[in-house]
Structures are given as structure tokens and as C-alpha cells.
């Protein structure tokens, strides 16, 4: 893997300093009233999860559609650069950038909730898991969106459904289908960390990340296997 696409994504992100500052400040400003204002843990954690997941999904969908419209994405594909590598490099670049941009907000949330060591150690993989999933969801949304506005709408709707399935908005009855789905969705660990962090307690048992990680790996493999079709759909004109 040449990492050319990964490197250029980072280079562009670092060059756009105003956007970078905006992407760091906005989540901090959004979570600050909740984290510092004593919002109920359950409501606060749901809000955090929605914010972080939408941040990752939009951050993947919108640039993909913009680059499809302005042309460089098509040029990369026509250069013969392997599509699976393009997807993987792009997703990893997007995830790591999102991670660093959301880190200050995450620190504020967990710091204000006086989270224990177990929460702090769990937050890194949980956040990475959620953001990589969100970036992949963003890729698929871009493939099925005909415009940027449609992409934003689809990303929001799909993310809210997945967050709902992850138990962010309700707790499914134990043993139900909903509970089983919740166990495997990669947004669940992030919500659990937020909940524990906001309550200032250790994460509850049963939030083992393995099922969610396995699902994410399958999702990543499917996305790379179908990378050619997905990127063709995104970059072809007319879309």
C-alpha cells in the first residue's frame, strides 16, 4: 500500500486550518453545556453519541461527493490506483482525523463526568470503532446519493436508525431481537462509554466490543470487496 491517498487526505486537512479549528471547536461548544450543566446522564450520552456519529458520517459523505463533483476522485480511479486501497486509506485517514478533532470534546465529556480509568481506557477503541463505522456508512451513503443535499439527508436518517438500533434512544427488552441487534452494532460501545463517563461510574458489564468489532471487520471487508462498484457509483458522471 503506497499510503498516497492517506497522506494527501492528511495534508489537505492540515492545510485547511480554519476548518480544522472549526471541527475541533464545534463539538466542544456543543457538548460543553451538557457536560458542564449537569444534564441527566442518559440524555447527555445519547446526545454525545448522535453528535459524534453524525460528525463521522457527514465527514465521510460530504467530501466524497464534493470530490466526485469537482473531479479529483475520478482522476484517482482512472490512474489505476486500486479501489480497495483507496477505500481503506481514505477510511483510515477520515477516522484518524475525526478521532483527533473529537478528542477535546471527548476529554471534556469524560473529564466533567469524573470518569474512572476503565472509562478512559475504553474510550479509545470505542471511539475508533464508531468513527470507522461512521466513515464506512458515509461511503455507502455517498454511493447511493445523487447530490450533496441527498447525501446529508441519507446520512442523517441512516445514522439515526443505526443509533436507535445501538440502544442509544431506548433500552430493548433483554433477550429480544432488538437486544441482540444492539449487541453487534458498532455504535453501542461508544454510547456505553459516554453513559458510564457521564454517570462517573465504571462501564457496565456486557459491553464487550468483540461482536461489534467483528461486525465492523465484516463491514470493512464488504466495502473493500465492493469498492470498485461503490467508487464507480460515487464518481461516475452523470451520477
Amino acid at each position: 500500500m503506497s499510503l498516497a491517498v492517506f497522506a494527501v487526505e492528511w495534508r489537505i486537512a492540515l492545510r485547511r486550518r480554519r476548518l480544522m479549528a472549526f471541527n475541533v471547536a464545534t463539538p466542544v461548544l456543543l457538548v460543553a453545556p451538557l457536560a458542564l450543566g449537569g444534564a441527566p446522564a442518559y440524555h447527555a450520552s445519547a446526545t454525545y453519541a448522535v453528535l459524534f456519529v453524525l460528525f463521522g458520517t457527514f465527514g465521510s459523505t460530504i467530501p466524497l461527493l464534493r470530490e466526485a463533483d469537482t473531479g479529483p476522485l475520478r482522476r484517482i480511479i482512472l490512474s489505476g490506483f486500486p479501489e480497495p486501497a483507496l477505500v481503506v486509506e481514505r477510511m483510515i485517514a477520515g477516522t484518524t482525523l475525526d478521532f483527533l478533532q473529537l478528542l477535546p470534546a471527548m476529554v471534556l465529556v469524560l473529564g466533567a463526568g469524573r470518569a474512572g480509568v476503565t472509562v478512559w481506557t475504553a474510550v479509545v477503541p470505542a471511539l475508533f470503532l464508531a468513527l470507522l463505522t461512521a466513515n464506512l456508512v458515509g461511503l455507502w451513503v455517498a454511493a447511493f446519493a445523487a447530490s450533496m443535499a441527498e447525501g446529508a439527508l441519507l446520512a442523517a436518517v441512516l445514522s439515526l436508525f443505526l443509533l436507535h438500533g445501538s440502544g442509544v434512544f431506548r433500552t430493548p427488552a433483554p433477550g429480544s431481537l432488538g437486544a441482540q441487534i444492539e449487541m453487534i452494532l458498532p455504535y453501542r460501545p461508544l454510547h456505553e462509554v459516554f453513559l458510564a463517563g457521564a454517570q462517573g461510574v465504571a462501564p457496565q458489564g456486557g459491553w464487550d466490543m468483540l461482536p461489534a468489532t467483528a461486525v465492523l471487520v465484516l463491514f470493512l471487508l464488504a466495502s473493500t470487496a465492493l469498492s470498485s462498484s461503490l467508487l464507480e457509483r460515487i464518481s461516475a458522471t452523470p451520477r
Binding site: V8, R11, R16, G71, R75
Partner: peptide
């Protein structure tokens, strides 16, 4: 038409 990454 020229198609580039504007920030490079």
C-alpha cells in the same frame, strides 16, 4: 477541464 485538489 482541470480537476484538482484545490488545497494542494
Amino acid at each position: 477541464s482541470p480537476r484538482h485538489f484545490a488545497h494542494l
